[in-house]
Every structure is written in structure tokens, then in C-alpha cells.
Amino acid sequence: MNRTEYMNALEKRLRILPGDSYREAMAYFQEYFDEAGPEREQQAIEDLGSPENAAEQIITNMAIDKTSVPHKGIRKNMNALWIGILAICAVPVALPFALLLLALVLLCLLCILLMLAAFVLLALCVAVLGPVIFAAGFTVLLSAPAAAMTCFGMGLFFTGFGLIAVYGIVLACKWTIIGMARLFGRILKKKGERNEQA
């Protein structure tokens, strides 16, 4: 196997990574071969091991790095979470167990995200209901001023409560994703420590 074949095999295995992480991983291997030079290409391939092992190792290292540092923004945290899931699946265990674990993790993640999405929708409905109630107060302002004042008060309350609830739930979503990414990072770190001891 030469450098081109090795890089092609690596590229197929690393394509599952998010864009930035994929480019970072490929740049690492390009730089590794560039530093080795053409005369030590075979030695570099032997040092790296098979493309499968090299891809598994880089995914695991990326997952540990990305989950150990909290990121700003949900997109970066989702990338870290995805890399963590990929790294757990890349660990050499029995394939059925890995698939079962992946399915279980993805279902739990999906349930949590759907529950949070339902709370966001509920809070948005409450926030939208507020201005509707407030506007309804104007329809009875002249005929029932007390009822109009009640509508104004309830409208303002629901609007404020709904907006605060949306903000709180968005923060809960962010911290849930960060927490899951850190959990995967801890799992991978422990597995890496066990592999080093073995």
C-alpha cells in the first residue's frame, strides 16, 4: 500500500465526521506523510497502522478533545456529540453490542430532544396566546372595562411567562447537548486509559 491508497482508505472511513473535523483529520495525516517524506513513506504507514485503526484512533482523540472543552453554540456541541457517538462505535467491541448501544443512545437522545422541542412549542404557544388575550381586551374595553383590564393583565403575564419559558428551555437544550457531549468524552477517556494500561 502506498500513500495515495492509504489516504483514500482513510478518506472513506473519516467521511462520517462533520466537515471541519474531517478536514482537520485529513490535514493531520497529510502533514504526517509530508514530514516523513517519500523515502520513509512505508515506515510512516507501518507507524500509523491500518487505515481502520488510524481512523478509529483519530476519531477517539477528536471526541476526547472536543468534549473536554465546552463550546459556544449548539452546532459545535452537536458536532462534538456526533463525534463522541462515532468514537464509541469505532471502539473495537462486538458489532451487535455496538449497534444496540448506538440505537439505545440515539433513541434516548431523540426522546430528550423531542421532549425539549415539545416544551419549546408549549412555551411559544403561551407567548403567542398573551398578545391575543391582550388584543381581546380592546374588544370589550368600552362595554366591560374590568374584563378588559383582566385581559390586558393576563395578556402581559402570558407573554412574559412564555418568553421567559422559551429562553429557559433553549438554555436547557444547550446544557443537555453539552452534558451529553461531555458524557461521551468521559466514556472515551476511560476506554482510552484502559487501552493504555492493557
Score class of each variant (00 low, 15 high):
Met78Ile: 15
Arg182Gly: 08
Gln43Pro: 01
Gly153Asp: 00
Thr159Ala: 15
Lys12Met: 12
Thr67Pro: 04
Phe29Lys: 01
Asn53Glu: 15
Lys12Pro: 02
Glu52Phe: 12
Ser143Asp: 12
Met149Pro: 00
Gln42Arg: 05
Ile187Thr: 05
Val128Leu: 15
Ser21Leu: 06
Glu35Met: 08
Lys12Gly: 00
Ala147His: 07
Ala146Lys: 10
Val166Gln: 12
Ile169Ser: 01
Ser68Leu: 12
Met149Phe: 08
Lys66Glu: 07
Asn61Pro: 00
Gln57Lys: 15
Ile169Gly: 02
Arg3Gly: 01
Ala103Gly: 07
Met149Ile: 05
Ala27Ser: 08
Ala144Tyr: 06
Asp20Glu: 13
Gly73Ile: 15
Ala54Lys: 06
Asn61Val: 08
Ile169Leu: 12
Leu122Phe: 15
Gly155His: 07
Leu95Asn: 03
Gly49Phe: 13
Tyr6Trp: 09
Ala172Tyr: 07
Asn53Ser: 02
Ala25Pro: 00
Cys151Val: 00
Leu102Ile: 02
Ala63Tyr: 10
Gly19Trp: 00
Glu46Thr: 15
Met26Ala: 02
Ala80Gln: 06
Ile169Pro: 01
Phe29Arg: 01
Trp82Thr: 10
Glu193Asn: 01
Cys125Ala: 02
Ala103Gln: 03
Ile64Thr: 02
Leu17Gln: 03
Leu99Arg: 12
Gly168Trp: 03
Asp47Gln: 13
Leu188Asp: 01
Asn2Ala: 07
Ile85Ala: 06
Ala98Lys: 12
Phe152Trp: 04
Ser143Pro: 00
Leu104Gln: 04
Lys189Gln: 10
Ala25Ile: 01
Thr150Leu: 08
Thr4Asn: 09
Val140Leu: 06
Gly137Trp: 08
Ala90Asn: 11
His71Leu: 02
Arg23Gly: 05
Ser143Phe: 00
Leu163Gln: 10
Leu188Thr: 10
Val91Asn: 14
Val105Asn: 00
Ala135Pro: 02
Ala90Gln: 04
Leu113Pro: 00
Asn61His: 11
Pro38Leu: 14
Ile85Gln: 07
Gly185Tyr: 05
Lys66Arg: 09
Lys12Phe: 03
Asn53Phe: 08
Tyr28Arg: 10
Asp65Gly: 08
Leu99His: 04
Asp65Arg: 15
Glu24Ile: 03
Ser50Phe: 07
Leu10Phe: 14
Val126Glu: 11
Ile133Met: 14
Leu10Ile: 10
Ala118Arg: 14
Ala165His: 03
Met1Gly: 14
Leu171Asp: 04
Leu101Lys: 12
Gly162Pro: 11
Leu113Ala: 05
Glu46Pro: 02
Val105Phe: 09
Ala147Thr: 14
Phe29His: 05
Lys174Trp: 03
Met149Lys: 15
Gly137Ser: 08
Ala103Arg: 07
Ser68Trp: 08
Cys125Thr: 13
Ile64Cys: 12
Asp65Phe: 12
Ser143Ala: 03
Ile16Ser: 11
Leu95Cys: 01
Ala103Ser: 11
Ile58His: 09
Ala55Leu: 09
Leu109Pro: 02
Gly130Glu: 11
Gly192Leu: 13
